[in-house]
Design a binder for these strands. Sequence first.
DNA 1: TCTGGGGTCCTAGGACCC
DNA 2: TCTGGGGTCCTAGGACCC
Length: 427
Amino acid sequence: MRKKVFALVDCNNFYVSCERVFNASIQNKPTIVLSNNDGCVVARSNESKKLGIKMGQPVFECQDIIKKHKIQVFSSNYSLYADLSKRVMGILATFSPRMEVYSIDEAFLELTELKLDDYGEFGRTIKAHVFQHTGIPVSIGIAPTKSLGKIANEIVKKDPKYGGVLDLTPLSEQELDALLAQVEIEDVWGIGRKYALFLNNYGITTAKELKYADEKWIRRYLTVTGERIVFEFRGISCIPLEMERPPKQGIMCAKTFGKDITKLEEMQEAVATYAARAAEKLREQDSLTSCLTVFIKTNSFKKDLPQYANSFTVHFAHPTAFTPEIVKYALQGLKAMYKDGYRYKKAGISLTKITPQRSIQPDLFGDFSLTKHYREARLMAIVDAINSIYGRDTLIFAIQGVTRSWKMKQLKLSSHFTTKWSEILTV
DNA sequence: TCTGGGGTCCTAGGACCC
DNA sequence: TCTGGGGTCCTAGGACCC
């Protein structure tokens, strides 16, 4: 069997790069993008990485550095990033019929069937093409397995001498091992904090040492996922390309509030809003749910305040994607556990037991009516269509509230350059 | 009074990813 | 004063079945 070839294409500092596409004045300035509510740093330009800003760091902790070095700060503009991501992926898709969109800023391309002489050259073409058409810089790692592609990408990002593209396929085993020895165990794809600590305790500190570890032992302590990494490092591809995203098995909508909630009515607004959003996502993938969990919690960082956290799960008699019904169950759950006298910081909805819409079963004996189900589905389709044309929340349910004092804080939001006509770039 | 062996399915919890 | 959100997969253990 011929060796496979995968390219991992990863957008550099993606959210920051997106902001830069539409803002020439921040090209070489240190820049960061914040999480919801402007709480933590979730993307950093190379300049801000050098200044010591850490991924996930709370903003208030690095306020001094931000001021001192005039770091450019942005709230998350998720619809802008999603739109640019779509454009990048569209271009990547023209380079191979076999592509896996792995995350908002990463994709695997399988190049095996292209039978090229020089994959590195192909990678450089892709990189140039993506930049020319979107303004987004990418790094590319090419290798016989997905895990090694990740490794190549890791090395490319750290060492400018590769110019953003590294092809491992022509390397000898010794050359490959020398590169693997440079990658620390915690930077390996699939090894998180816990496993890194565990492996370090046993003297496995680099990707190379993991490659030559006893696979039986690895399987026992890191399960099959760990064992797969070992084999992938040895050049045996065990993590297949997944071209189609299967429908989600769980859908979540959870957010911290812009300000604490102390009243049940406000909490009902928030919970109803999240439930309605989750129901929307459910319908986007043509699914139904029959189980909902609602949770609420106070701010656990504030140790001196009274703490309360609870969740409530509701199982439905019939699967549904009808917003009023899902909202009703969510509010029932909320009522069952809500307690007065606390300052709530966060709430969320999670939908599980998700089934495809076409699997719906008429109930011979119960009160379930197929006619009613279709009527509800048509109504929702209309609501969704209106909201998609005129903007989210054009049509909402009264319980979701109109004041929304608890809404996310986003003080440094850039314009929706590509998704709202009113905010299109002016020159 | 003695009481096997082999399944499946479900759930909770823990690991991971970006 | 200020600390994100949304996913996946795997395993162990319990319930239940024959």
